[in-house]
Write a protein that binds this DNA or RNA. Structure first.
Lengths: 210, 210
DNA sequence: GTCTATATCCCGATAGAC
DNA sequence: GTCTATCGGGATATAGAC
């Protein structure tokens, strides 16, 4: 662990991965704003110009960080889905995993959403995002009307939005800064997902509420 | 409109407000990252040092932008709540208003969440945030078990999270970049809020899902 | 593939005049 | 309250040697 790739052959062997790891560390310490190519190079122990052999510019390095984030998130999603029983519980534990990911891998979460990247410019990132979505599409399908692919997408979107929002609020300090806050946020988002699942028929057609 | 304060007496009369407006414009164009005190000064037509008579540093100017954002959001929340009938519809239209706010006042939304401000350091901002929350707490209270203030808070939190998430996904380009995407996101978040409201009993106690 | 050196630019913040 | 001038710092990105 601790590296984004798992490989271990820095300093003349895997500079790109080393730069990604360094960049993520910097983002974790100072936010996306405080990250710079120069800083990542310094931390990796190479010259300021070395990164430009591997990444065209700052944004490309950031995009690589975002891809690493997708891979980690996908891993966590897959584990959460596998551990739960019913489709509803799979979605609930998936949203909790998402919030926990934001808390435990804050730098990755920020690289993914706080960088303001134009994702259309990075096909590899687009693919990685699509792969993440696919991982949690299964339970959503099981909860939607049979064969209604759009309904599944809408449900997943609602669940994603819920998790995204709770993660943002958590990182914004709304649950406090320490571990109990993280656990609380995870419980809350899981409960909210269950509520969403229970009321889901309202997602598939547009009538009124109580 | 167009100004954050409504007042109109810039260039020797209301420089702080002018700087806030300029800062928001810059954030809208280049993101929070691309904003600078120097840039805001330039755009306002004053010297680079003038802002420092009114704001101690960059973050203080950003905090003022965030306060302006809270005021605008509160206005919209109040209108949305007033326009809807049942408490459930009030929450639904409130979350839609939140998403629309993010789309139409993107720079304000970013100032509020993308700036990474330590809000504890800016009491005025804390107050403004609290006032926003109070505006939508009414309908949440009406939907919670009678007198259960915590349940109301939890429901509101879920609704806020949902709206926050949809707003983030919208700004991330997940609904496309144009107006139909905005409308779609608003409809979706309203529908999801209704689903949440319908299933809300699961928010107030922790059993399993379907 | 990496280094040294450099060109170019912008920023935050302060000092002191008016 | 605003301006001019300035210090000190750091960033991106490129050129050319090895």
């Amino acid at each position: 662990m601790a590296t984004a790739t798992g490989k271990r052959a820095y300093h003349h062997g895997n500079l790109p991965a080393a730069l990604v790891d360094a960049a993520l560390e910097l983002i974790g310490e100072n936010g996306v704003q405080g990250f710079s190519v120069a800083g990542a190079a310094r931390r990796t122990g190479v010259s300021i110009s070395a990164p430009y052999r591997h990444f065209a510019d700052r944004d490309e390095l950031l995009a690589a960080c975002a891809v690493a984030a997708c891979e980690e998130l996908q891993r966590r999603f897959a584990a959460a889905v596998a551990a739960a029983g019913s489709p509803g519980e799979q979605l609930a534990s998936g949203s909790a995993a998402y919030v926990r990911f934001a808390a435990e891998r804050r730098s990755m979460f920020e690289a993914l959403f706080g960088a303001g990247l134009d994702k259309a410019k990075y096909p590899q990132l687009q693919e990685a995002v699509a792969a993440v979505i696919e991982t949690v599409l299964g339970p959503a399908r099981a909860l939607a009307p049979k064969g209604d692919e759009e309904a599944a997408a809408v449900l997943l979107e609602a669940m994603t939005g819920l998790a995204q929002g709770h993660a943002t609020l958590l990182l914004d300090g709304r649950y406090g800064e320490d571990q109990p806050g993280v656990d609380l946020a995870c419980e809350r988002v899981a409960a909210a997902t269950r509520a969403l699942v229970r009321g889901r028929s309202l997602l598939f057609s547009p009538p009124a509420a109580g």
